[in-house]
Amino acid sequence: MTSSTPADIRLIASDMDGTLLDADGQVPENFWPVLDRLLAAGIVFVPASGRQYQTLQAVFGDRAGLVYIAENGTNIVQDGTTIALETVVPAIIAPVVEWVRSTAAAGADLGIVLCGARSAYIERDDEAFVAHVRPYYAALEIVDDVLAAAAADDVLKLAIFDAGRAETRTGPAVLALGLPADVVISGENWVDIMRPGANKGKALIQLQKHLGISREQTMAFGDYLNDTELLDAAGHSYAVANAHQSIRARARHQAPSNLDEGVITSILAALPNLAPELA
């Protein structure tokens, strides 16, 4: 880890869960004045998340200057306009859905979310599962058959909830299907399946080109395996203290944990001119 201070930051991308958000899954109140001052200074802030765009937009509202990297990099949206969309290879959808159905029927606590550009779709409707899904998907429909729903939307991602063994069971099992897809462990209980090469880092690079901002003018924050490429795409990468060990090893800097408002602390340390009027 280096201790140098970024000099000319024009773009800041941050993961949400486990990184920016607090223990209750909320944006810390201390972040809002920092965000307002970032935007006033012409610095682009990018929520970069596995959450869908509709969910992120509901959290941040209609602030001009925000760009969203949603669905783990498969959907980039600026001012309500889609900049880039990465849909899954259609042939992967049925095999993944059928694997989840059969594995759940054998007793595993699994559920699938088919993540479309318009809405997310689930067919498991018990209260416990829906409670796990709803925080990430503001646009959510419970349907009889997610495969039928797939035909009427652009499918950006398939997300599998595994209550106990996402990294050791679901991830390896889906990889073993040999499908043309990238399989990413995006949280303790979540596995995401996307188009090959689609990730937060690729999206950040696309955004840098779109905005004319360089890698060295970019900060990025993350905590989990789906943040690997995001950190690689930023000249100034930060792992929060609670991050997965491989992410801590990957990042150039370490930030305090999400519980200690590590994103806020690190932004103000790197850009001290934002701090004086915050008190």
Rank of each mutant, 00 (worst) to 15 (best):
D162E: 07
R134M: 09
R134L: 09
D145I: 09
A128H: 10
A131T: 12
D126Q: 05
A159S: 15
D153F: 10
A131L: 06
F161K: 00
A152E: 15
I160S: 05
V155P: 14
L147T: 06
A151R: 15
A151K: 13
I142M: 04
K157A: 02
P135S: 10
D125R: 08
A128G: 06
Y137R: 01
L158G: 00
D125P: 04
R134G: 11
F161P: 00
A149M: 02
L140N: 07
G164A: 13
L140R: 05
A148G: 07
K157D: 05
D126H: 06
V143R: 02
L156Q: 06
L158T: 00
R124V: 12
Y136E: 06
I122C: 11
D154M: 04
G164F: 09
A139Y: 06
E141H: 07
D153A: 12
I142C: 05
V130M: 11
G164E: 13
G164T: 13
I142S: 05
A166Q: 07
R165Q: 15
D125S: 14
D153V: 14
A148M: 06
R124H: 08
A139R: 11
R165W: 13
A131N: 09
A163N: 10
F161R: 00
E123F: 01
R165E: 15
A131W: 06
D153P: 13
D126R: 02
V130H: 08
G164I: 03
I160V: 15
D144P: 04
A152N: 15
I160R: 03
V143N: 03
Y136A: 07
A128V: 12
E141R: 10
A163M: 03
D145V: 10
G164D: 14
A151Y: 11
I160Y: 13
L147V: 02
A138Q: 02
